[in-house]
Amino acid sequence: MKQVLETDGLVCPFPLVEAKDAISGLEIGNELVINFDCTQATEAIPQWAAENGYPVTHFDRVTDASWTITVQKA
């Protein structure tokens, strides 16, 4: 199952802070789609996922300065 976390409009580091909070409520194997528009998170979110051993199943730039990343809880 997928859950979507909309963080557009939030300044860094809040997309990551919200993602950490949201993923704690997910069951193992479920995915969290994080939509964000602060540049710093393009580095901070994948790094956080890697540190926790969460696979990144999708990562794309939607439009100028807007990204989506899907992290699977593991």
Binding site: M1, K2, Q3, V4, L5, E6, T7, P13, F14, V17, E18, K20, D21, A22, G25, L26, E31, L32, V33, H58
Partner: peptide
Amino acid sequence: TIKPKQSAAAVPTTESRS
């Protein structure tokens, strides 16, 4: 100041897994 908002919970989606 850096802490999650209580209200911003992730919303489940009907979108099937890809």
